[in-house]
Design a protein around this nucleic acid. Sequence first.
DNA 1: TTGAAAGCGCTAACAG
DNA 2: CTGTTAGCGCTTTCAA
Lengths: 350, 350
Amino acid sequence: MNSFQSNPVSLKEVANAAGVSVSTASRALNGKANECRISETTETAVQQAAKRLGFRPSRVAQSLRSQRTGLFGAIVPDVANPFFAAIAREITVAAEHSGYSLLLADSHDSTDVEHHVVRQLWQRRIEALLICPVGLVSDHLAELDRAGMPVVLIDRGFCDGRLMNVTSDHQCGAAELTKLLTNQGHTRIGVLQGHPGTLPNDERLAGIRQALIAAGTDLNPKYVRGDQFGEASGYDATRRILGQHPEITALIGLSSENTLGALRAIAEVGLRIPDDLSLVTFDDHPFADYLATPLTTACQDMAELGRLASTLIIDRIESGKRLRKKMHRVPMRIIERASIAKPKQSSHFN
Amino acid sequence: MNSFQSNPVSLKEVANAAGVSVSTASRALNGKANECRISETTETAVQQAAKRLGFRPSRVAQSLRSQRTGLFGAIVPDVANPFFAAIAREITVAAEHSGYSLLLADSHDSTDVEHHVVRQLWQRRIEALLICPVGLVSDHLAELDRAGMPVVLIDRGFCDGRLMNVTSDHQCGAAELTKLLTNQGHTRIGVLQGHPGTLPNDERLAGIRQALIAAGTDLNPKYVRGDQFGEASGYDATRRILGQHPEITALIGLSSENTLGALRAIAEVGLRIPDDLSLVTFDDHPFADYLATPLTTACQDMAELGRLASTLIIDRIESGKRLRKKMHRVPMRIIERASIAKPKQSSHFN
DNA sequence: TTGAAAGCGCTAACAG
DNA sequence: CTGTTAGCGCTTTCAA
């Protein structure tokens, strides 16, 4: 009667209760009654017994037997980060939808931890891995892939053509965003960099440069500061750029976190946005419209990233074939708000 | 040599390679060499073979054998919601730390889905369930609990004394928050309600009332509007309160989402915060300091909620004993910002 | 129409 | 010091 039992009911107990053998019970419970020509009588008898005892087949036994766990693994650098949380959500949804369960792990932005949890998940015989990788090398993931495990990299990626990637079109988004600045006449643009060497960072930088060149100028390497995606890096970078290069008229924060640092630094220096300095950024959040200075931004479609990655993985599992195409791009969306003005004639330190 | 193999290497293969029996191999690999007095020679032989073949014991086989999966289940109404994401994060951390893996599911705020995933997790033989439940009844969870599964409810809870709960001290937090308002002379205070009947909602309401009474007045039921935690509900409720009760001088949003709606409605009506209307809310986010009107708030310690819940669960598993104490409270923290002013003499519609 | 038996990969009790 | 055996809960031949 009860749904859950202290000592989970085994098939054997059901079979005994129904007075049949385990094999018959198994068949009756798995809709193989017709196929195996089981009598209506025994079929219902078994079903009754199963219901009465609250039988729930053990998926671990099923997994061992069938060599299929129905498990996805997902690894993100920080579940609490809304960006990764949004991706994780779509993965859970897609997994649940296709009858899979999700083993979620957090790598804390550490390659060591990542290695460790990859091993764990492998031992649990996940059937696919969706990962937002940390670090600059993907050998352990490529190995997994070579071993036949469907793997897809989300957000951070690697262009070596080995693994499947799902990434925003950072270069395009960054170029469009920058164009908004150059259109207003900005040419001396500071960039608050994230982690150099990572795909999003480098592609965004490339996009900025591309737009600057299209506008008849170029990216001044001295205007590029910072080395991490975090708040502190954004703060330091901003202080330094502003201190050393008062001629700068606009700032691009390469992540929403380091833009937070920029906001703090700018407030301390006493500059106003956009009058004294234009500021644009990446990614978005629910409160963006209510900021004191609503920032123009190029934001990623996290839901689509997660969705596309899940679809690719599921197709791969169901078809058994791996796709030729490795890089999958999700377009970014520009949201124009009120953080861009024409550059002032004079530097803001006059 | 390789870490991962297409066809996972079984213990048997290792045993064969090392020229010993599976049991010996098992023992050598599980540090029982001394205990079982295995010769150094064979021990290293087995270890070599295991390493060479890239042996990773199957946790599904181990689980079946030992009847222990080392799996936690977690269910949240929406992983993408930063509040639940933050809780989920601490759970993953605690789980990884104690050698457990985490099966994460999203209930989409639906009791049906919740029921369904609870079943799934049960079939996967999770050893404990941490859940942010949706809905007003907990019978299915109490059943789980009765079946001996450690269960802890986070955020939403039930006071019937059956299940373990970890919840913020909503009443206390709400009372403190309200006191900030009454101290400034506010007495006609509107409340944007969330989902009535849920523990956080009702306790917050109680806290507000308590503070109002302490200030010599009471909560006017007509000033309480809204019926959901979402943005739309907050918007509608604000429009109605403001329209029908111009005498109101302050508003309390019972969730950050419905406060978002309030912000929108207030902007439309053309009121300024805090000059025309004071506004306070619950919960917090990284950009809160940079809002056009930084809101004073009573915020929950999500990390502590997740941590405490995990600790309770792990203690329960390790000790085998269930705690007498059912309700566990995590204090809320008041962050004072700039959204409270003294009430104006006249109503804001004069 | 049903049952007996084998085996998925592992561990542990029991025998040598 | 090590091997044989049984069994976790299930599905699936193979045989009747």
